[in-house]
Amino acid sequence: MTTEVFGKHKWGMVVDVDRCTGCQACVLACQVENNVPLNTQERYERARGMAWIRVERYWEGEFPDVKARFIPILCQHCENAPCEPVCPVFATYHNPEGMNVQIYNRCVGTRYCANGCPYIVRFFNYWEPVWPESFRNHLNPDVTVRSRGIMEKCSFCMQRIRRGVRNAAKENRELEDGEIQTACQQACPTDALVFGDIDPDNNRTNPGRAYSMINDDRAYTLLPRLNTDPNVIYLAKVDPDREGGAGGH
């Protein structure tokens, strides 16, 4: 056991929509962790804000029978990712750990991948990221700052995964479930986001938290008819007063 065995894990995330309150803690935690540039007013007005994870809000009905539904959307890390085959320089590819990866130094900025993504979770750097000199102090040194012309997206906090795997190998032990937390999961006050290894073989003897949730009755994936086979699993919102929808009852 001297080298880290790469490809042993298959990372995934379970998002419990029923717990999400739309508080935006995950969004900012992600932005801070991953050196995502400041979204200035101008960027928002041009509809070019960046958020590796975002909370979408949908309205249902009219007052007084109105509901606001929140859903956090991040890169789905699809097994059959539409963004991967279109990249002419292999800057995005599927790695053995089940993640859809963006390699910044390979990216030439064709934006084909962003056009291919049905979840719209890829963001393009139209400008050089700019921070006032003093704000550079809080940049995360573990994450590359992307320059202009580069596509970026959720990496499942790759830097935390690498650090966690390395620490386990250093101490010559197995990685524990829940040891690696993504920034969004760490922030989420209602525990709506659960990240972990969802490979069935790795969960046989001691099932992890994320794995035990993916077969929940409420589990679904986004846009399943596109057959993208995402590694982000959602648990449906519960409405105790919902009527008529249920088919089998």
């Binding site: 519960v238 919902r242 929808g245 249920a246």
Partner: peptide, 20 residues
């Protein structure tokens, strides 16, 4: 039900998706 799938009590995601 896309993207926010809503299930009633005791309804499974699959049933709700079919119904939707």
């Amino acid at each position: 039900g896309v993207p926010v799938l809503v299930v009633g009590p005791d309804e499974t995601a699959h049933e709700a998706e079919e119904a939707n």
